[in-house]
Simulated scan of single mutants.
Amino acid sequence: MTAIGYTLSSEEHHPSALVDYAQRAEAAGFDFLSISDHFHPWVGEQGEAPFVWSTLGGVATATEDIDVGVGVSAPIQRFHPAIYAQAAATVAAMFESRAFYAGVGTGENLNEHVLGDRWPEHAVRMEMLEEAIGVIRKLWSGREVSHHGDHYTVENARLFTLPEEPPPICVSAYGERAATAAADFSDGFWSVGPQEAIEVWEDNGGEGPRFCQLQACVAETEDEAVETAYRYWPNSGLPGELSAELATPALFEQATQMVSKDDIAEGSIITDPDPQAHIDSIETAIDAGYDHVYTMQIGDDQGALLELYEEEVLPSFS
């Protein structure tokens, strides 16, 4: 059975608001939540970027049964894998018997450059991610760990606060090479939008939960939705690897000058207010092989999507 989720967008909302939206999503009947991890928003208009692990502490205490995942963190530069291991273990312990999913990836320069480290090419970042996951798993064993690898050093480290079961580590991968590599060291797959890479991941032995985020803007009219999405999420129209390589919100704002409202209207964001458009998009993701599909509402009016899904969309998947 497919789990249907709701996105807590750290780039757009104050942490206290995110906790409130988590409560409302649980009351609406969503199966799980995913929260983004950013040091910066993509563009300044989005306006927020709270520390995800603090926000998750609030979500853990404000909700009761809903499962949660981080989609996704990059435990390779901004977070040393030992620090990521402690943060994720603490949060997973706070969710107690609920499922907590650790989504990880190779990150974006936008967030990871802030400590002044060199931004490596993608192949190197994948090597770093594989080594980081190995370190994290060792620490989640509860044993004392020393590690002297190609990218990371850990000495006499032991985590004392751990969940009953380690969270599944779901790796984000978009290209064929990344998906092939991720199949060897992941416990699941994470994606924005249905990606063909999931087939590569599965063909190479990838197993576990498979997450897919959809992007939407629910408004009274499609024109209003396009206007809102263009204002708050023009970065969705950027091509290729720009999203991984640009370093600041100001650079994203410059790059998105080549994105038009027509690009938004014709792109992947669901702007049709008809609930069937949302149902169809979720079914497309399910048909592509995903068993966890979650939707992000762009803009201030989160209630519009929460109400639409509670009344019209979620009943189709119950």
Rank of each mutant, 00 (worst) to 15 (best):
residue 187 D to K: 07
residue 137 R to I: 05
residue 249 P to E: 01
residue 246 L to T: 02
residue 137 R to Y: 11
residue 264 I to H: 03
residue 154 V to I: 15
residue 119 W to V: 08
residue 176 E to P: 04
residue 189 F to Y: 15
residue 88 A to V: 14
residue 164 E to W: 02
residue 26 E to N: 07
residue 44 G to Q: 14
residue 25 A to S: 10
residue 307 E to C: 05
residue 123 A to D: 12
residue 288 A to P: 05
residue 7 T to D: 03
residue 223 D to I: 02
residue 102 A to G: 07
residue 36 S to R: 01
residue 188 G to S: 09
residue 114 V to Y: 03
residue 176 E to Y: 01
residue 213 Q to N: 12
residue 256 T to L: 14
residue 68 V to Q: 04
residue 93 A to T: 03
residue 85 A to Q: 12
residue 161 T to M: 15
residue 302 Q to E: 00
residue 4 I to N: 00
residue 169 I to E: 04
residue 50 P to K: 06
residue 48 E to H: 15
residue 137 R to A: 07
residue 41 P to N: 04
residue 292 H to P: 01
residue 59 V to E: 11
residue 270 I to M: 08
residue 261 K to R: 15
residue 43 V to I: 12
residue 227 E to G: 01
residue 220 E to R: 14
residue 215 Q to G: 00
residue 267 G to Q: 03
residue 196 E to D: 14
residue 219 A to W: 06
residue 104 V to M: 09
residue 110 L to Y: 06
residue 146 S to R: 12
residue 25 A to G: 02
residue 95 F to Q: 00
residue 247 A to M: 11
residue 80 H to Q: 10
residue 284 T to Y: 04
residue 184 D to P: 10
residue 174 Y to Q: 13
residue 160 F to I: 08
residue 70 V to D: 09
residue 54 S to V: 14
residue 81 P to H: 11
residue 11 E to F: 00
residue 116 G to A: 02
residue 193 G to P: 06
